[in-house]
Amino acid sequence: MKKPLLEIHDLAVSVDDKLILNGVDLSIQKGELHVLMGPNGTGKSTLVSAVMGDPRYAVESGSISFDGKDITDESADARARLGVFLSFQAPEEIPGITLENFLRTAAGAIEGKPMRVLAFQKKLKEQMQVLGMDESYASRYLNVGFSGGEKKKAEILQLLMLRPKLAMLDETDSGLDVDAVKTVSKGIRAYHDEGNSILIITHNAKILEELDVDYVHILENGRITRTGGRELADEILQTGFGALQKEAADA
């Protein structure tokens, strides 16, 4: 079997000395699209934050490998440069840095060389069009005064500009109106079609409609309790996690 792009093995993670994840196993192959679902507060965001290398999340045991390399102890920037990306649920506002300058700096850091200004601007303009973002956002300070939906779009814009190997999307669809979900979903699809891998955390079916889902995982009480195909997502969206838990208890 092919070596997975992301391989999480028996991962335990704590926040402020409280154990949140306890024994998570997850493999994502190149080009696959995985969906992570689960009740609120079960550790979905913790999982993607730990994969991204947020220092507030302490890995107690287990390992994370990316592209054949153990990244458990790597810093977030090293992971980003290897091709890991996280679209944040509530991205930070950074005053004084325009979205464009920030993106060019980030792209330069990831490429390992400075970006050519004109070529970069052209590409940025194209991608903003794809997402239906007004050009003026490029010269606004990063996320400052952006609405919830604008922040989400700006996250996907970063994804499209930085082209990582794995994109983890933490409830990117929440706070977006129906049309915006469609637009964002199109952007994600284009990114996926290039053979990239995706891990989506969502509570909604809408964003999945346009996408080819390979696997759906249910995270409960700090571990993945069930894995299936798209039908598992459909089932949950119809009956809720409660029914699923009941079913498991009855079995």
């Binding site: 991204m52 290398g53 947020d54 220092p55 507030r56 810093s75 977030a76 920037d77 992971r79 980003a80 440069r81 990306f85 996280l86 944040f88 991205p91 930070e92 950074i94 005053p95 004084g96 840095i97 920030f102 700096t105 980030a106 850091a109 990831i110 300070y141 970063q158 930085l162």
Partner: peptide, 24 residues
């Protein structure tokens, strides 16, 4: 952390934030 998750080193992330603070 947000800036580092986009590939910037910790030094560069801090410098960028301080630079942004001074921008006005």
């Amino acid at each position: 952390f947000y800036l580092m998750s986009r590939g910037l080193s910790e030094d560069d992330a801090r410098a960028l934030i301080v630079g942004g603070f001074a921008e006005p």
